[in-house]
Design a binder for these strands. Structure first.
Lengths: 151, 151
DNA sequence: CTTTCCCTGTTACGGTATAACATCCTGAGG
DNA sequence: CCTCAGGATGTTATACCGTAACAGGGAAAG
């Protein structure tokens, strides 16, 4: 799943720590641990898998959900609504609208930048709405699964 | 919530019946009942609210979830992933990619046609993905809630 | 008539998420 | 040093969302 490990993981975590500090927030143990698990996975992870993998016999649900909420708020992670899963954000620490391609066959996901925010913004304006967040999840088949190399 | 009632509701239901028949499917009692509840609500409804409102002491979850699955498959309803809720589709019976504006304050939703499918398709193609379905949900404030008239 | 296929009913369960409250740090100000 | 306010965490319990698995029923085709 292209997850991080070793030096790259450490680098990503310390970079995250710096960004969190710059935002006058704290990267506490539980937040750091959850981010680490998301980065290691390199793909979507279910909340209860994080809970189980947390260590020392696991964590309680609120611990992990609070960490996820924090990571989302600061732009280190996204929630995939259509999968009930969470994923580390490749553009960690920069708040932005996320868009995903999700393979219906193997679950592989890619975060993309389709540049649709402006069009949605216009459509919202036409209905008098002001926009504050965007969820865009496209389901399909990844290259491997299209050709049968999948899984 | 702009829900349907009386003649308009009857008309919508019989139109749905015709479309279902044209698709060589059956609009059974439970399917018709769930569609009726969605149309009456005129907005997003939670599955368990449908279960409670179903009548005769309510229905069992599988009954309602099966009906919802059917209605989605035929394009009569959509699931709002970010709300865990379901909504009747204004373009009932025509399968299409849905996009929604959702008010974070009062929950009002509008189905829009932002015309982004082509852009997402291109972005998917660039990553080798073939597209089969699209979820687009924009959160913001509706006109009433922006001006404080909300609720 | 009977076979087939789809739809439904029912029980039970598993996965997802949060409420509510107690506790504990940590940093600012006295 | 003290203490006090605010955020973060720990803990228990519970509510909500969705589905598996299997039995039964009913209409249409042969």
């Amino acid at each position: 799943m292209a997850g991080l490990a070793g030096r790259a993981l450490d680098a990503a975590l310390s970079k995250a720590g710096a960004r969190v500090a710059a935002a006058d927030e704290r990267l506490t143990d539980s937040r750091r641990r959850v981010l680490e698990l998301l980065l290691k996975a390199g793909g979507p992870v279910k909340a209860y898998d994080l809970i189980a993998a947390y260590g020392q016999g696991g964590a309680k649900p609120p611990t992990v959900y609070r960490a996820l909420e924090f990571l989302e708020r600061l732009g280190f992670a996204h929630r995939l609504e259509s999968l009930n899963a969470y994923v580390a954000c490749p553009r960690s620490g920069e708040v932005h609208a996320a868009a995903f391609l999700i393979c219906e066959c193997c679950g592989a996901t890619v975060e993309i930048e389709p540049g649709v925010a402006d069009r949605v913004e216009r459509a919202a304006g036409a209905h008098g709405y002001s926009l504050r967040g965007l969820t865009l999840e496209a389901r399909g088949l990844c290259p491997a699964c299209r050709t049968g190399d999948g899984h």
